[in-house]
Design a protein around this nucleic acid. Sequence first.
DNA 1: TATGAATGAGTCTTCATTCAT
DNA 2: CATGAATGAAGACTCATTCAT
Lengths: 210, 210, 210, 210
Amino acid sequence: MERPAKSGTSTDVPTKDRLIIAARDLFWSRGYEATSLAEIVKKAEVNSGSLYYFFKTKEELLLAVLDWYMENLFPQLIEPIIAHISDPIERVFALLDGYRKALVATGCTYGCPIGNLTLELGDSLPRAREKLAKNFEDWRQWVRKFLEEAGPRLPEKLDRNEVATFVLTVMEGGVMQSRAQQSLEPFDAGVRQLRTYFYLLTGEHPSSVQ
Amino acid sequence: MERPAKSGTSTDVPTKDRLIIAARDLFWSRGYEATSLAEIVKKAEVNSGSLYYFFKTKEELLLAVLDWYMENLFPQLIEPIIAHISDPIERVFALLDGYRKALVATGCTYGCPIGNLTLELGDSLPRAREKLAKNFEDWRQWVRKFLEEAGPRLPEKLDRNEVATFVLTVMEGGVMQSRAQQSLEPFDAGVRQLRTYFYLLTGEHPSSVQ
Amino acid sequence: MERPAKSGTSTDVPTKDRLIIAARDLFWSRGYEATSLAEIVKKAEVNSGSLYYFFKTKEELLLAVLDWYMENLFPQLIEPIIAHISDPIERVFALLDGYRKALVATGCTYGCPIGNLTLELGDSLPRAREKLAKNFEDWRQWVRKFLEEAGPRLPEKLDRNEVATFVLTVMEGGVMQSRAQQSLEPFDAGVRQLRTYFYLLTGEHPSSVQ
Amino acid sequence: MERPAKSGTSTDVPTKDRLIIAARDLFWSRGYEATSLAEIVKKAEVNSGSLYYFFKTKEELLLAVLDWYMENLFPQLIEPIIAHISDPIERVFALLDGYRKALVATGCTYGCPIGNLTLELGDSLPRAREKLAKNFEDWRQWVRKFLEEAGPRLPEKLDRNEVATFVLTVMEGGVMQSRAQQSLEPFDAGVRQLRTYFYLLTGEHPSSVQ
DNA sequence: TATGAATGAGTCTTCATTCAT
DNA sequence: CATGAATGAAGACTCATTCAT
């Protein structure tokens, strides 16, 4: 006699993963405080008490979500870009374009999960703040790597790490204003200005400004 | 017989204003969801039932706080800058420096109240989102005004409004990363890169890069 | 138009008092940990959230109950004894007999609320432990007062305060064993032995032993 | 290939015994209701599911603990006293002194496990109450035996069994007050009064009172 | 306007217990 | 015997909001 599949979940994702995915999505769309554990377990189709078998507190679940983001940055975002785009500076802008696509997909409502949590939580959950900083750090390292690959196209004295930080700054500040205005315009404006900055730095397309 | 002063509040701030101030500070430091009305009335030294005489809901109190920010942008931030700084481009950087000071004062923990609320709330409270957009709009108009005062120092074809948006982008993206890292470095890095961008646009200090 | 009575409580006991009474009875019959706040509010016919308007925590409610016991020791137990019994040593035994009556009334199941809580809680709630100690102290003072009123009938060198402690000891130790055995025998045995002790001390009824 | 020792427990106590010991200690220090099975399995270093192989419910574990106390009364408490003390009345006081030592060792916080559980549980778990009564009964039998060994030193008409009950009464009532006051004084006071009582009964040391 | 009591759904979390392997 | 995942009711407590005075 065959044993029937335990739950309706088609691909049988482990309970712990279902919780992380559900929490990730709800923290992203609603924020940390506004998301109740009841919503999470419901979305994950997990029994209420089971959550605590895997995560001692809501905070620990958040930490697991932040780990998920770190583990998935490379395979889900970086690798495809490296695979499809060869120009290192264009790789940077591809990263920005990825965020633009997420903005489009959610009607300019959701934005960047890392940025959202950073501003919502501040230092109220210090362990989460540390992981958020690590997320930014990982992103920055990839941007920096791309910039270094641009080699002499950028001024020698230019601090690649600082520019990498600047790229993230533009990405996050742009997403924020686009969410406030419910319009892609501010994000696109930021990217255009950043492009102009790179043109001026590389001297590769001066005609756009002067 | 003379009637004694009702409360111990030295300068006798009206109840409604006390509530707005208390809510403003708590929403800033803790966020909207994480702040309870109980905390607000306690901090404002107002009776719990009284809050609802002035504000029908927690959301309405938030709207009042957002109005407060709009009403105080000019007298508290813009006017002093206009009074003390004459160079229009330096006025833009003075705005950025104001945020830097707030960052320093709170040990890189609080950041920009408008940005925080924008990312925390998304579109969950549409009326609040509109007021947040208006706050950004007011800021942008002032930056744009300063940039227009710079006249021909900036390239004629440069879209002043777009650059104003970019300035806010840099401000908000920088504050975010500085809060994540608990360090002024990311914010300062963004400001330095923005300065470099302006140097390249105005041609006033090319030596720093090339 | 007459306003209808708010609740079904006939004598309109204030909410706070209803909570204290309900908690007192449940803590007595079930113990502190085994009593849920849900049971208390149900018994008190109070809305669940209202409890916290009056008491910040379950512990604070317990403290209020312990205050209730202290406030009611004299009017409910001591005063009637003083009014009806004149012999000071018999007043002491009247106190013991009061506990016997409570034992009878509850079928030897409930015992002394102060003793129960003392042994259940130990020092896990230090503020409660202090109030429990004060309850014992108040009892001891009354027993001591009665013993002092016995004047020279008791040996001069006998420490009245110590004997008062001993009386409480017999009362509590007796109640405990009667509850364990579900029988009045152990309690009565203790009282009889205490009586014998007093006979020996006063020399007033030597025939019972020797 | 040799099979390595399964667990790190040095003396390799069987799982069931580890559970009983852990439960005994936690029920003693925290009480029955306040102790969770999670704490017990953690302290016993036993897997959560395994507990139910040995004990169907929390109550059954409690019953096992109460059996443990009964089985260990003679070897751990009575036998050493018989071995070291020959005067039967002093054996009674040695029993009291054993409790005093436990009081000292725990800073007057833990007391008598049997007494604690008796007052905490009342008749809510009737099978436990019966075993608690049996525990008292075993104790009483030993005290009674010692008193009978005292033979004619005590008045012939004196009910030895009743005095044995009285001794336990003094022990338990004293421990209770010492825990409430966090002081050995009440316990010592009770013992001194009991000694005086015995002096009066035996006539062996009348000088202390009269 | 102000007050403080009331409301009940909701919060995160822990509970004793069960199950399949 | 052992394991660790699962269960769902219940725990103490907080929430935004309402009400009568």
